[in-house]
Design a protein around this nucleic acid. Structure first.
Lengths: 207, 207, 207, 207
DNA sequence: GATGAATGAGCTTTCATTCAT
DNA sequence: CATGAATGAAAGCTCATTCAT
């Protein structure tokens, strides 16, 4: 595993270096900037091309539309970080630990990749018009719901309303994350705890 | 003859006024549909005109841009319902009653005017680029925060984190409201209670 | 003649007073302002209507187009002043007196009606696209040319190049008139003399 | 093969460059025609595009507006002829020689490029609204005025009214040039002499 | 005659996309 | 693959003009 991690890191830096050479990455990075600045709906293919400095035709060697760039952004993100959130060896003993683990990873990701988070949080409406199941990638709400269901079955999690969880978890985490991004050197734990506490208290209620 | 003339004149001005009002309403209604279907950012003036059947020039007799249509939509809404939420004679005795009152009114509005709610909930990012103070109209979060602050001072409300409230109240209410709209004949009280309970428990926490 | 003159003057003041009541005059006056400010080519019917405060339809009760307004402006001018330049009882004894008489009248008209002069001087190109023989109205070059021809025949004028006169008289008079309008209280005689001297010296040359 | 490839590449870039230059020239030429026919103010971008046969979008690959076309027309002219008028090694000994030199060059240019002259002479009013310093290019009146001032100082030119010169020189030259263009094979010297004589006699007057 | 809302032609401009090079 | 000029659809908007009132 350690080796894998190392390799992964090496791959990252290779990627970064390749950026200058690889037009695909060039376009994706430009796309990220444009989507953050103008919003997905208002962004145009031209905007993206312009900010790469490439010829307009080159864009179509890699993508058919800005939507495909967006998908690529999320796919690349998934390759890079997605799995980190999902896969972990830590075996949470209770719901609080479980939630804390997930939320902390999510907040860490937001700090690492604020642009990706901003795109997703700010363009919720536009994104839902795509047939992207991308939003799930992030907090992977459905996945979490299932984990929670199983945890309840196993009796290690309390009997919470997992549908309500599915409904409010992401908006809450997003809001608090946005708030966190306003600070210069935010203390991730502080914000993650605030989020976890609120969620748990809200869901457990009088129980 | 005199009678006839009189009637005719009255009829004339009525007709005129009626057509005028009618076209304005026609455009606004078309705007609502287009904004709901395509999202505010993707909607074009031409989309709106097309769905009215009017000539393109007619649009500009009433509005300068789609933004003005949007403002008109919210203004009309504000005249109609806005004050209802804010002004009430009921004097809530405690935080729960207070929140319940506000949230119930909000959920009622969402049911009465689901399109307006959809536009505002789904285009948060786009709307914030306008200088509309519209978002406040809805849950009027800032206004509520102040009421809560005063309630805390007076000692009738518990000492909750009103900043956190300001951060999460709207996303939560929006999410649950969206969920409510999926049902045919939703029981408003049920959804409002769910929202209020979640908020109160989340905010009061272990207190 | 004296009676006629009187009547004419009375008619003038009637006209002026009627201005407030008469929409035709209202439109013509608005036209003058618009043509001076924007130029004939850039002026639109809408511009004219707007600056009258009348309804757009009303315009078409009087004129078919901005061109017709322009024609009316020149026609009205012709009725009012045109004849003054042409008809006079003074019988000039020589070319210098003749030219001085005409040019002085022209410069006086420019001072009285600077807007009309500005329209004609600044929109020469546009005006020539109309089938207006209006430009002649002003200095009535062709008319003057004929008077000069006859003067030469009679032997009271020197044998100047009247074609050259026809070519340069108006541009020169216009230029010097424009220059005159830059002063607050211009001395008409000074500018008229400058113009006459230049023309006579230029035309007589070494003769 | 290598030779062929080389040739092909060269041919490619030549073709490209040729088309590009061709379209630019196409638009400029169309612009000249349209400006002459309709006048600058009434001409539209569409008029120009239509008369090229190109797609509307193509226009904007080369120019942002009709004004830019106009500037290009004058710039191209300036590159081509502008300097010819200004720079010359002939050292005129007196005012007549000086004026004759300048005016002849101007009349030669009018014959070479009658359309350019027509545009400038007929659209004086419109052009003055642009921030083109184009009018100077033509007769470069201000430049000439300064040369004359210096000539007077040096004592090689008579003490003429150079302000009057600045006022009337261009209109006179334009008028006579327009007249010249009516002839099939005009004798430039004849017209230039007529212009010079008129100017000199007018300016020197009784002196 | 006065009104002014409705009309739709037509202008400016931008955009996604293609394709010869 | 890279290029970038050409394309034409389509957007925003204004205008002259009509016509019911």
């Amino acid at each position: 595993m350690i080796d894998f991690d190392k390799e992964e890191k090496i791959e990252f830096s290779n990627k970064r270096e390749a950026t200058k050479l690889n037009n695909r990455t060039l376009i994706i990075d430009a796309g990220i900037n444009v989507f953050v600045e103008k919003g997905v709906a208002e962004a145009t293919v031209r905007d993206i091309i312009r900010s790469t400095g490439l010829a307009s035709g080159t864009f179509y060697n890699y993508f058919k539309s800005k939507e495909e760039v967006l998908i690529a952004i999320f796919d690349d993100y998934a390759l890079e970080i997605g799995t980190k959130i999902r896969n972990h060896k830590d075996e949470p003993k209770n719901f609080e630990e479980f939630l804390s683990l997930k939320v902390t990873r999510f907040f860490n990701y937001v700090l690492e990749r604020p642009e990706i988070h901003l795109i997703m949080a700010n363009n919720h409406n536009t994104l839902s018009n795509f047939s992207l199941n991308t939003p799930q990638i992030i907090l992977e709400i459905d996945y979490l719901k299932n984990e929670i269901k199983e945890g309840i079955k196993k009796g290690i999690f309390p009997d919470i309303d997992f549908d309500l969880f599915g409904l409010v978890a992401r908006p809450i985490a997003d809001s608090i994350a946005q708030d966190m991004l306003l600070e210069k050197n935010p203390n991730v734990k502080k914000f993650a705890d605030k989020c976890v506490n609120f969620l748990i208290n809200g869901l457990l209620g009088g129980k």
